[in-house]
Simulated assay, not measured.
Amino acid sequence: MLKVVNRVKPASKALVFAACMAAIGACSPIFKNHGYVPPPEDLAKIKVGVDTRTSVEETIGAPSSSGVVRDSGYYYVTSRVRHYGPKRPKVVSRELVAISFDQGGVVRNIERFGLEDGYVIVLDRRVTDSSVEDKGFLRQLLGNIGNFNPANIPGVNN
């Protein structure tokens, strides 16, 4: 009888161990941060009713976006997104600082919102409904019988 000896080299064991550790490490979540929100100590430097748009920009920096209606306010937004393997990325935290101004450009209010304060807003497109979706060609054609009025023909005088 021939005895088979299975000898695994230590280098092969190390290679298999390294491959297993790389596979486990590839499944760890990856976090990405987007945007900028000034820290609370910088926001404390802004005085409501005293500071203006230019002094706010000098103190905490330019906003990531501003109001649509005639520069109504400054908005600073930051998000933290978790990517985990092949799954869809998930927003785990979001913070928004809204600084509103009065008509003279003086700070009126400073508000801070988190992800828990948000509401889901469904955006829908405005689409004109067609009245012919349930009618076939013949029904549309025959439906016009009796609706003919010679006065509606252009160029015909009454």
Results as ranks from 00 to 15, higher is better:
L2A: 12
L2K: 06
K3V: 05
K3P: 07
V4A: 12
V4D: 11
R7K: 08
V8H: 15
K9Q: 10
K9R: 11
S12A: 13
K13V: 13
A14D: 11
A18W: 08
C20G: 04
C20E: 02
A22G: 07
G25N: 09
A26N: 07
C27F: 09
C27I: 15
S28W: 08
P29K: 01
P29G: 09
F31Y: 06
K32W: 01
N33A: 10
H34Y: 14
H34R: 04
G35N: 13
G35W: 07
G35Q: 11
V37R: 01
P39R: 02
P39K: 01
P40F: 01
E41H: 00
D42F: 00
L43M: 15
A44N: 04
A44T: 06
I46M: 03
I46D: 01
K47A: 07
V48L: 04
G49M: 14
D51F: 14
R53H: 03
T54P: 00
T54C: 00
S55W: 01
E57T: 09
E58Q: 03
E58G: 00
T59C: 07
G61N: 12
A62T: 02
A62N: 02
P63M: 01
P63A: 01
P63R: 00
S64K: 08
S66M: 00
V69R: 07
R70V: 12
S72F: 06
G73N: 05
G73D: 04
Y74K: 00
Y75Q: 01
V77E: 09
T78F: 08
R82M: 14
R82L: 11
P86R: 03
K87T: 06
K87S: 13
R88W: 09
R88D: 09
P89N: 15
K90Y: 05
K90A: 12
S93T: 15
L96H: 04
V97D: 01
A98H: 13
S100D: 14
D102Q: 10
Q103T: 11
G104A: 05
G105W: 06
V107P: 04
V107S: 02
N109Q: 15
N109M: 15
R112H: 06
R112G: 04
R112F: 11
G114K: 06
G114M: 03
G114A: 14
G114I: 14
G118N: 10
Y119W: 09
Y119E: 14
Y119H: 13
V120R: 09
V120W: 07
V120L: 14
I121N: 08
D124N: 03
R125H: 12
R126Q: 13
D129C: 05
S130K: 01
S130N: 06
S131E: 13
V132R: 08
V132H: 05
V132T: 14
V132G: 10
E133M: 08
E133W: 13
K135I: 08
K135E: 14
G136Y: 07
L138K: 10
L138N: 07
R139T: 09
Q140V: 14
Q140M: 10
Q140H: 02
G143S: 11
G146F: 02
N147A: 07
N147P: 08
F148C: 00
I153M: 03
V156P: 09
